[in-house]
Computed example of a mutant assay.
Amino acid sequence: MALLNQTQVTPASFILNGIPGLEDMHIWISIPFCSMYVVAVAGNCGLLYLICFEDSLHRSMYYFLAMLSLTDLVMCTSTIPKTLCIFWFQLKEISFKECLVQLFFIHTFTAMESGVLMLMALDRYVAICYPLRYATILTNPVIVKAGLATFLRAVFLIIPLVFLTKRLPYCRGNIIHHTYCDQLSVAKLSCGNIKANIIYGLIAAFLIGGFDILCIAISYTMILRAVINLSSADARQKAFSTCTAHISAIVFSYSPAFFCFFFNRFGSHVIPPSCHIIVANLYLLLPPTMNPIVYGVKTKQIRDCVLRILSGIKNTKSHSV
Rank of each mutant, 00 (worst) to 15 (best):
L4H: 13
L4Q: 15
T10E: 10
F14S: 01
N17F: 03
I29N: 06
A40M: 04
L47N: 15
I51N: 09
R59F: 04
R59H: 12
M61W: 02
Y62K: 01
M67Q: 08
D72R: 05
D72P: 01
M75S: 14
I86V: 11
K92T: 14
I106M: 07
T108H: 02
G115D: 05
G115I: 08
L122T: 02
C129K: 11
L138R: 01
L138F: 02
P141S: 03
A146F: 08
A146Y: 04
G147F: 02
L148P: 01
L152P: 00
L152V: 14
H178A: 09
C181S: 12
S185M: 07
N193H: 05
A204E: 09
L214R: 10
C215S: 09
C215E: 06
S219M: 03
T221V: 01
M222P: 03
A226F: 00
V227H: 06
N229S: 15
A233I: 11
F240P: 00
S241R: 15
S241Q: 14
I250G: 04
V251D: 06
S253M: 07
P256W: 08
F258N: 10
C260E: 05
P273S: 07
V279N: 14
M290S: 10
I293Q: 11
Y295L: 05
L307P: 09
G312Y: 07
